[in-house]
Nucleic acid binder design. Structure first.
Lengths: 91, 91
DNA sequence: TCTTCATGTAGCAAATGTACTACATATGAT
DNA sequence: ATCATATGTAGTACATTTGCTACATGAAGA
């Protein structure tokens, strides 16, 4: 069964929605690229469960970025900040 | 149940044994750093099953390398080759 | 309005990850 | 010879992931 409410604090953080938006992909498209069910992408974006390593690797490959750019144990800084904002402490 | 014989071709490749050896860590030590059971590390090194994303991230963190340096969907080139061998095609 | 597409919610069934315990073997040190 | 450590094998139990199906909603367009 899925988590109906994400009451627990997240096990991981993801840039999936951002990266997908940047590429103008729907979940369905990304899912097909990664070879998974399109609902699975939704569950990941909503943090309803955390993926397996191979799924995460396939997603990163489909987005053409290293895995650490998509998933992390610690929160991501906004990419805009990283690019344009000197104040951005986190990487 | 675990895979007794790795008859299927691997879902992923790992440098875990090499990296662990370089650091002179036992599986037990690494397991404690990553917060998992020490048998779990063994299963991963033998390719008996593939980890969850968070476990993989914790292991990479314990080894102080990016995840892509430890796990990959495609085979790794030897680090020695990468460092000393111009012929090394793969990264 | 009707249709399509993207997204959310709900549930079930099957596969898999992880912890844990126990035991076997090899190696190195004392 | 004994002991400790590192590693492999086996098996059980439980939680979680994943695929899949179905239905609801909202937005965009014809």
């Amino acid at each position: 069964m899925k988590k109906q409410v994400p009451d627990e604090q997240p096990q991981f953080y993801t840039r999936l929605p951002v990266l997908r938006a940047e590429r103008g992909m729907s979940r369905k498209e990304l899912a097909e690229l990664a070879g998974v069910h399109y609902q699975t992408i939704g569950y990941l974006e909503r943090g309803e469960y955390s993926p397996s390593l191979v799924l995460a690797l396939r997603i990163a490959a489909a987005l053409a970025v290293p895995l650490d750019a998509v998933f992390s144990l610690t929160p991501f800084a906004s990419m805009a900040d990283q690019l344009y904002n000197t104040e951005g402490e986190n990487r």
